[in-house]
Design a binder for these strands. Structure first.
Length: 461
RNA sequence: UCCCCGGUAGCUCAAUCGGCAGAGCGGGUGGCUGUUAACCACUAGGUUCGAGGUUCAAGUCCUCGCCGGGGAGCCA
């Protein structure tokens, strides 16, 4: 007989003469003559309570069944006479698969700190909080695919290994099969001629450039995959390996781009609220008391859209002291972003039309010749959730911008080529998947959002 | 990478002015006929992150190192 998942059992509308569940013991309570077990199998936040009477065969097998043990319970699903749960299992037989020595099993029947659980990442998904979190992560990923499929976007698997070494989005991890003890006598170019690809290779920092190529063929596309940045940044919002969602649309301008970003964020948030209400409730109760207020705000507000120049104006007139002075031409600091969305507008804000000097070469130059059609979506407490732009579709302008950025147009011949043949105005953005999850759960450290986070000096598990 | 804070029992923390290293939870043992963060009693458990220094005396003060957290930069 197939096991029944705890989620299904708890949703039953009638008692069952026979039921078999398999999972891990969360807690055991003994009284004289009987014991209670609570079993969790990861299917939902709730445990199912099992009662074992001393006159059943199961009672004799209780000995090594303690917190953390993996077991199978066979018995009857009955209405629980106790308070706190509708259903419980009256056990007939117990089968122990693997015991968990209570002296050394790291997870106790008590709250653990996130810092401690990070050192126990191979087991932390067995806790209420992390189980809930990773179910929400899974549902959120599904909602991305659902959203784009419904909108007629094509899912593109952009390459993980890249040969373009300066996409302008951060430091690359090098990919090589060369021996580590290579003598340093040869020049750099010579070395990579002998490497696997015959040229310097790295892990992708963005799928955007490839997504643009496909958008200019299939119309609307998106990527959703891992992204790697070799930056030595040590903050609760950065990881060396994270997941990014990058839609790219042909025949779309910056305004269309903002519409899509706002709509996508709302869709994903709504999906989590509707499909993960029980798991989300845990975060609203224990992680962030104001969570639902913020989620409502993300769902129901119209996001403010202001040009960069206006943002600077607001900040200057705010009368607030900033550690980093505000001035046109200077990029917004974290404190500025927070003031805009947390204090001034108190809702998500899209800042657009940034000075070209502080943005990437591929962003479309505006008619003022001074700003580019870039946009950042800022949300309270998380900061920049989305960064995107209308792309420069004019061959000559793009080539000039590449040169001005100190790069070699020859390295981007294919990127320039789609501007030579049937070029089209187009737009796209990147949405940090983990940052979305931080926003929707209230978890403040990205290392607690990723199953096995990779950060500087951390590559365990 | 820079700045700030921290590291004491398995976990979370306390230890006043430098003066006998403690509590709660968790673990073990026993009890308890419907528990649910079970309850009650008893009990074990320490290189106070490491190395050096000051002192009659260091968890506490000083130096260096390691690790962790927060802030900044960069960005998703």
């Amino acid at each position: 007989m197939q096991r029944i998942r705890v989620k299904t059992a708890l949703a039953s509308d009638a008692p069952m003469d026979f039921i078999r569940i398999q999972g891990w013991v969360r807690t055991r309570r003994d009284s004289k003559g009987f014991s209670f077990l609570e079993i969790n199998d990861g299917s939902c936040l709730k445990n199912i309570q099992v009662i074992i009477d001393q006159d059943t065969p199961a009672f004799a097998d209780l000995k090594d069944i303690q917190t953390g043990a993996s077991i199978e319970v066979s018995g009857a699903l009955m209405e629980s006479p106790g308070k706190g749960q509708r259903w419980e299992i009256k056990a007939r037989d117990l089968k122990l698969f693997g015991a968990a020595d209570p002296e050394s099993y790291p997870l106790q029947k008590k709250r653990h700190s996130d810092e401690f659980l990070r050192t126990t990442a191979h087991l932390r998904a067995r806790t209420n909080k992390y189980g809930a979190l990773f179910r929400i992560r899974s549902e959120s990923a599904f909602s991305v695919h659902q959203y784009f499929r419904d909108k007629g976007f094509i899912y593109l698997n952009s390459p993980i290994i890249t040969g373009s070494d300066c996409e302008g989005a951060g430091e690359l991890f090098r990919v090589t099969t060369l021996p580590v003890n290579l003598p340093h006598t040869e020049s750099k170019t010579d070395i990579f001629q002998d490497d696997f690809f015959g040229k310097e290779a790295g892990l992708t920092v963005s799928g955007q450039l490839e997504a643009e190529l496909f958008a200019c063929a299939l119309g609307n596309v998106y990527t959703f995959g891992p992204t790697f940045r070799a930056e030595n940044s040590n903050t609760p919002r950065h990881a060396a390996e994270f997941w990014m969602i990058e839609p790219e649309m042909a025949f779309a301008d910056l305004s269309d781009n903002m519409d899509l970003a706002e709509d996508l964020v709302k869709h994903m948030t709504r999906h989590v609220v509707e499909q993960c209400s029980e798991d989300l409730e845990l975060f609203a109760r224990f992680v962030d008391k104001d969570l639902m207020k913020h989620v409502e705000m993300v769902l129901n507000s119209t996001y403010e859209r202001i040009p960069y120049a206006e943002a600077i104006d607001i900040l200057k007139k705010s009368g607030k002291f900033f550690e980093f002075p505000v001035d046109f031409g200077v990029d917004l600091q974290t404190e500025h972003e927070r003031y805009l969305c947390e204090t001034h507008f108190q809702k998500p804000v899209i800042v657009y039309d940034y000075p070209k000097a502080i943005k990437a070469f591929y962003m479309r130059l505006n008619d003022d010749n001074d700003t580019v059609a870039a946009m950042d979506l800022l949300v309270p407490r998380v900061g920049e959730l989305v960064g995107g732009s209308q792309r420069e579709e004019r061959y000559d302008v793009l080539k000039r911008r590449i040169l001005e950025s100190g790069m070699d147009p020859a390295d981007y011949w294919w990127y320039l080529d789609i501007r030579r043949y049937g070029t089209v105005y187009h737009s796209g953005f990147g949405l940090g998947f983990e940052r979305f999850l931080m926003m929707v759960t209230g978890v403040t450290n990205i290392r607690d959002i990723i199953p096995f986070p990779r950060t500087p000096k951390h590559l365990e598990f």
